[in-house]
Structures are given as C-alpha cells and as structure tokens.
Simulated scan of single mutants.
Amino acid sequence: MEKSARAPEHPDVTLALIAGGRGTRLSGVAKGLLVVEGLTVMERQLALAPLFAEVVLVANAPEPYARFGLRTVPDAIAGKGAPGGVHAALGAARTPWVFAVACDMPFVSAEVVRAVLAARREDVDAVCGEVAGRWEPLLAVYRARLAGAWGDALAEDPSLRRLLERARTQVLPESELRAVDPRLRAWVNVNTHEELALHSVSLPPR
C-alpha cells in the first residue's frame, strides 16, 4: 500500500487492525473481507489511514489480506484471543500510541477516531468508550509502552476490560460518544448471519 504524501494528522499514533480468527459463524470467512456498499470492511477502515503514521495488521492467518500490502504481525503470545492481538500491536508499534480497531467493525468514522484521540492526556494510558454499560476496548487508543506489563498479564488469560482496569484508562461515557455518532454505528461489529442482514453487510464473493 502506498503511503500518502501528506503528513498524517496524528504522527504519534499507529492504526492497528486486529483481524482475529476466521469467522466460524460466517462460514469461515475473513471478517475484514465482508462487503458494505461495495467496499470490504478492510477498505473502509483503511480510509482512516491518513489520520495515522502507519497501519499495522495483526493476523495469525494473513493470507486473505495479502492484497492490501500492509505490514503484518502475528500474536507474540499465541492463543490469547483479542487481548493477545492488542498486545501484538503494542509491541510492533513504531509510535508512542496505538489505535486498535477490530476487523469486524464496518462503520468506524474519522469523527469517532478523532474524539477518542482527543481524550488522551499525560496521566492517561488508554482511552475507550462505554456502550450499554460495556467498555469497548477494540475501538480504543493505548500507549505502546503498555506492551510489557500487558504481556506479563496475559499468563492469567485476562479479559481486555481487566487489562484496561489495570491501566490508567479514560472511559468516555455513552453520552459523549453519541455527540459524535448519534446511533453508535462505529461500535457495531458483525459476527453472525443475523448481523449481516441487520446492517446490510454481505459475504465476499466466492
């Protein structure tokens, strides 16, 4: 993928696309290749690239995404699911901050990304939103230096929320999120055939 000639809006942040496993509930398709309005989810997310210094794909089976030409890293500690994916992104980053997005989130917007990034402070190590009482760690920004402590903690198989609770995390309330995304579309993820139909998302052509 060719890098834009323009300077990134946030040169201190890497965008990490967390591919995770194959979508077993979606006939094994790579979820970043799901199609919305003629574009794959991956293409829609890569439209955010000008905001960032670099894009990194975290994938243990990267072959379906080869055509995008992204720097790709596997989990550094195998078998830890989404916490392991974020840890791999933190360890691979060449910038002080990492913005992590799951590859099954088709509707992430630049406005939402900017709102999360704007909440960073000197005394904060991570920023995520809260939707329906749940913290949303796969649309969130992290200091890359969390990688060491995060890696040590993975031996306990913690949830992403538990890891965030151990860090200095700023949690944005739902009211603030709705100010930039009234329907909270950015936090939609697609994992089932029912969700495909609900959000007008299609399987990739065979």
Results as ranks from 00 to 15, higher is better:
E111N: 08
P106R: 07
E195M: 08
A30E: 01
K3E: 15
G81E: 01
L33I: 04
E2M: 09
V101Q: 08
M42G: 06
V56H: 04
A16R: 04
E156I: 12
R168G: 08
A78E: 07
S4P: 00
A89E: 06
R134Q: 15
V124K: 07
S4M: 02
N60T: 10
E174R: 06
T14S: 13
L164W: 02
D123N: 14
P64M: 10
L163N: 00
A66D: 07
A186D: 00
A92E: 05
R121V: 09
S159L: 07
G85S: 15
P8Y: 04
E165H: 03
A7L: 14
V98R: 09
R120L: 15
A93E: 06
L26W: 01
P173Y: 05
G84F: 10
F68D: 05
L70M: 12
A119E: 08
E176I: 00
V101S: 06
P137A: 14
V73N: 06
P173E: 03
S202N: 10
V116G: 13
G69E: 02
V188E: 11
R71S: 13
G81I: 12
K31G: 13
V55M: 09
P106I: 13
A47T: 01
L146A: 05
V188G: 01
R44F: 10
E9A: 15
A92Y: 13
A132F: 04
N191Y: 14
V29P: 00
R168Y: 07
A132S: 09
V101R: 07
H199V: 11
A167R: 06
P158L: 11
